[in-house]
């Protein structure tokens, strides 16, 4: 090791000392580990994409872009298309985001803006975050045995009285888009609520003081000052919640109904990409596996786009503050 550049600068009697060899070593090792860890993540993602892409390549070559725009999934005749699944994935996730995003944001406002004593707010926050700890399959069962029966009378009424509106054009037989979206909304609620809370917490105290100093009411301050200030972080939370909804598998496989149709009706069964993969993969033959890999690539691409956008928004939001 080179002579220690700091050694000469230190007084003999000083209690401070130059970095020892051990300090240099631990610093170097930590740095190497950090680089290796970061590199491994990138390599892992690249490897997964490469591996799935490699297995999907024959299907991509055979079915081309038509795979994304056709509607048949017929293993017997080797005809594959995933448009209904893409539609179902985006539709159910958007619905979930509408519902979950709305409630998540309000939970965040409720817990950060002094409506509750701070200690109680922490308890509530923990409870909301506990929602994220419930296994997906439990959500699915809950959806089947609680949400669907509870939803049925409302859905029947909507269908009977407002059946001319495309959204209510079919009756709810059981599993379908609406029960799936409702459960999905609850599943993304902790993500949206937690990140929105962080964003609202990051609103500088000076801004709050200034707002109240101007004589605003609490709601004026929240709606016109704090929310716009935290808007980028909140938007980021929505995007992350949307990304989570896109990839959710088990609960949706149990609740969406697995029907390969494109429909606007909230009560008819549909299908999603993740559900298609989970349901068909375990016993698929060689040809179907390639098609499923292609579908996985499509799902990966959709999720990637959403997450990149979300990450970008988050980064910008953090920089601004």
């Amino acid at each position: 090791m080179a002579p220690n550049p700091f050694a000469a600068a230190v007084d003999a009697g000083s209690i401070s000392g130059p970095p020892a060899a051990y300090d240099y070593l631990s610093d170097r090792v930590f740095r190497i580990l950090a680089y290796a860890g970061a590199g491994a993540v990138v390599v892992l993602v690249a490897y997964i994409v490469w591996e799935i892409g490699g297995q999907a390549a024959p299907a991509v070559a055979k079915y081309g872009i038509g795979f994304l725009t056709s509607t048949t999934w017929d293993v017997g005749n080797e005809k594959f298309g995933i448009l209904p699944q893409i539609w179902g994935t985006l539709y159910s996730s958007l619905l979930a985001l509408l519902i979950g995003g709305f409630f998540g944001l309000f939970v965040a406002i409720f817990l950060t803006q002094g409506f509750l004593p701070p200690k109680l707010a922490i308890v509530f926050r923990t409870i909301v975050e506990l929602l994220a700890a419930i296994p997906s399959v439990v959500y699915g069962l809950w959806g089947i045995y609680v949400v669907i029966p509870a939803l049925r009378p409302i859905a029947d009424w909507l269908h009977e009285t407002l059946g001319f509106i495309p959204f209510f054009s079919t009756s709810l037989s059981g599993p379908g888009l609406m029960p799936a979206a409702l459960v999905l909304a609850i599943m993304i609620l902790p993500t949206v609520a937690a990140i929105s809370q962080d964003a609202l917490h990051l609103v500088p105290f000076k801004v709050k003081e200034a707002a109240y100093g101007m004589g605003t009411t609490r709601w004026e301050a929240i709606l016109k000052v704090f929310l716009p200030t935290a808007s980028r972080g909140i938007f980021g939370s929505m995007v992350l919640g949307f990304g989570r909804a896109l990839g959710e598998t088990m609960a949706l496989a149990m609740l969406i109904g697995n029907a390969n149709q494109i429909t606007l009706s909230l009560f008819s069964p549909a299908n999603t990409l993740a559900s298609l993969l989970a349901s068909n993969f375990p016993e698929a033959g060689a040809v179907e596996i390639r098609a499923l890999m292609y579908a996985a690539i499509a799902l990966l691409a959709i999720t990637l786009i959403v997450n990149v956008v979300g990450l970008f928004v988050m980064t910008v939001a953090v920089k601004k503050q």
């Binding site: 037989s173 029907a259 149709q261």
Partner: peptide, 13 residues
């Protein structure tokens, strides 16, 4: 067949 192309509205389980 052991699997056929059912009409789209059919729920598959």
């Amino acid at each position: 067949g052991t699997s056929v192309d059912w009409p789209g509205s059919a729920m598959q389980v």
